[in-house]
Nucleic acid binder design. Structure first.
Length: 585
RNA sequence: GGGCGCGUUGCUCAGCUUGGAUAGAGCACCGGGUUCCUAACCCGGGGGUCGGGGGUUCAAAUCCCCCCGCGCCCGCCA
């Protein structure tokens, strides 16, 4: 309809002596909120340019629109040309798209530009905490959005197996238990074994905060850790090094899996040391215009012209002893990503802003045309607590959060569904609880700090994940009671939608493709969450306002089609949010 | 001190990239709704200097400048 409106409006404006083409007009097009119209064009700009009265111009332009199958009615009002869509046309197009597209309804065209989304990438030193999970949810959701928009997308987890954190956990676990300092030993059970029911990441991560504190005050321990760091740099890890890290990582991935988060690929940092690419980066950076060497032999880049807030205004590329740094290794990693992907996106906590700026500066320094893109998120803070840190041991674990959410969900499900077997209640509770957590994270703009409040995060009413699941389940129930498969053909008469509730729902369904497109191009993940809520709200309102199964045959047929389309679209939106659509709950 | 980000109703947030008419939701509060497809729902109501001030514009929550408050960062850590 947009194209028709633009063409008509351009012709009408030219007839009124304003010279514009449809393409330029497209930027003026607005979706009105204050008035019940589908599209609007403000005339003030053209009125001003031609010295006319906006109200009169709008009325004149509106009057010149010719009737068509897409446009029902056009009116000029206080300087705006308001266009009302012909509803049958809108209904027919929308429902056709939904029923033809099914689970692909809303998706963009296939594209060739490939994308790599790196997210989470937490050091495998212990269980994931609530702060980190925001990056995981954002990254996973972004990847799902990009895929839906048509971009071939790969998610990656960057595993730090050579940094200080990796050295520290290896230092702990490579020692025989009896030789552990008491401060560390006391973090484990008396027999030192993994307690039954405790996840492996939790168990192996137990001594980590204490170890951090310990090496700060014990130089000899600190020296041992440094030696391990150098060994890792040389590619000679302590025995069990990769095994320990892999086990912790597996435990972390188990938690993420509950949220539907899985990775396509893992990039181990050590591979970039092993294959010489870190050395290559170092050599390359040594030959750049701003390369410099410190007195102790460390290599650096004079970054004073890059506007970094570093006091010394230099980026250290390698230490005096020749070992590499996180940034340098990360440059090697990113160059490798660019050799495979057209776009490289990193989802990072905002404490990594400087790192992001440093990477950009080094890419400029190396005269690389491309740049990684960054999705930076503020941390989740607990009301009353400060920043969460695994190092400091001040974190609330993701597992405990999920367990609590699922526990509360089970209470809710049990109250309503005493007809279901316990296993089914457990299954639903798991999906409701984890869906609630995903939604509460995904609905907030990444750059905003989230003040985490348990009551709000674990609420199942209003603007929540379960609200969305509930609307889906209701739609599914209607189809089930009608004896129809969701994939059955749903005939409909596009001229048969007259109820406001029907029309509102259809309009929401029609907005879905635009929502994906906008989210993908802007990277604004939260838009999908907002949309899903508005769609569910429109469905609930429709459900309340008109009967489906017990209505007159023609109405019943049409409403069943609408329910099926709503179910499909809500399901598609839920899947992008990583929330399981439930047939019953 | 410097860099970046945030500030929208009592609380939690959409909307800001690309400026349009009366700024939207949820929670909480008040009042209604269940002989009917799942009330985890729906309908209505009160509640707003969009942090403050200037500027640009026919038009500013949205763009620009200044200020205030809060957060993150400013390592040869990651």
């Amino acid at each position: 309809m947009q194209d028709a409106v633009l063409a008509e409006a351009a012709a009408a404006l030219r007839a009124e002596g304003v010279d514009v083409d449809a393409t330029a007009l497209a930027n003026e097009l607005v979706v009105p909120t204050a008035v019940a119209a589908d599209l609007a064009l403000p005339m003030h700009r053209f009125a001003k340019a031609t010295g006319r009265d906006p109200t009169a111009l709008a009325e004149a332009v509106a009057a010149r629109f010719r009737p068509s199958s897409e446009i029902e009615r056009v009116e000029g009002l206080s300087g705006y040309v308001n266009v009302h869509a012909a509803f049958p046309d809108l209904a027919r197009r929308t429902l056709q798209l939904v029923f033809e597209g099914k689970e692909r309804y809303g998706n963009g065209p296939g594209r060739t530009e490939s994308v790599c989304v790196e997210h989470t990438s937490a050091n495998p030193t212990g269980p994931l905490h609530i702060g980190r999970v925001r990056g995981a949810v954002l990254g996973d959701t972004l990847a799902r959005i990009l895929r839906a928009a048509g971009y071939p997308t790969v998610t990656q987890y960057y595993v730090d197996d050579v940094g200080r954190a990796a050295a520290l956990i290896s230092w702990m676990w490579s020692k025989p238990l009896p030789s552990w300092p008491p401060e560390l030993r006391s973090t484990l059970p008396p027999d030192g074994a993994q307690p039954p029911g405790e996840k492996v990441d939790q168990y192996l991560g137990r001594p980590y905060p204490a170890a951090n504190a310990y090496v700060k005050t014990h130089p000899e321990a600190s020296a041992e850790v440094q030696q391990i760091s150098r060994d890792l740099e040389r590619g000679v890890p302590p025995p069990l090094h990769e095994t320990i890290l892999q086990q912790v990582l597996d435990g972390m991935l188990l938690s993420l899996g509950r949220l539907g988060i899985r990775f396509d690929e893992f990039a181990w940092e050590s591979t970039f040391l092993g294959d010489g690419s870190v050395d290559a980066v170092r050599e390359r950076l040594l030959r750049t215009p701003h390369a410099m060497t410190e007195e102790n032999g460390a290599h650096a880049i004079d970054a004073s012209s890059y506007g970094l807030p570093s006091e010394s205004a230099r980026i250290i590329v390698s230490r005096g002893d020749g070992t590499s740094l996180y940034v340098t290794r990360d440059v090697a990693y990113h160059l490798q990503k660019f050799s495979r992907f057209d776009r490289v996106i990193d989802v990072l906590g905002s404490d990594h802003v400087l790192h992001a700026r440093t990477l950009e500066a080094l890419f400029t320094e190396m005269d690389e045309a491309r740049r990684p893109e960054f999705l930076l998120y503020q941390f989740i803070t607990i009301a009353g607590g400060g920043k969460m840190s695994t190092r400091a041991g001040t974190a609330v674990s993701l597992d405990s959060l999920l367990d609590e959410a699922v526990r509360r969900a089970r209470v809710e499900v049990s109250q309503r569904r005493d007809d279901l077997p316990a296993e089914e209640i457990d299954r639903i509770a798991e999906k409701v609880g984890t869906g609630a957590i995903r939604y509460v994270i995904a609905r907030v703009a990444p750059e905003k700090g989230v003040k985490f409040q348990w009551e709000e995060a674990l609420s199942f009413e209003g603007r929540t994940g379960p609200f969305l699941q509930y609307a889906f389940a209701r739609a599914a129930a209607v189809l089930r009671k009608a004896g129809l498969s969701p994939h059955a053909p749903f005939p409909f008469d596009p001229t048969g939608f007259h109820e406001p509730g029907e029309r509102r729902l259809l309009r929401e369904i029609a907005r879905w493709p635009g929502t994906i497109d906008h989210a993908a191009s802007s990277g604004q993940v939260q838009g999908v969450g907002t949309y899903a809520h508005e769609l569910a709200e429109a469905f609930n309102s429709f459900y309340q306002s008109v009967p489906v199964l017990s209505s007159e045959p023609e109405l019943r047929t049409n409403r069943l089609a609408l329910v099926a389309a709503a179910r499909q679209t809500m399901g598609n939106a839920l899947r992008i949010l990583g929330i399981e659509p439930l047939e019953t709950m």
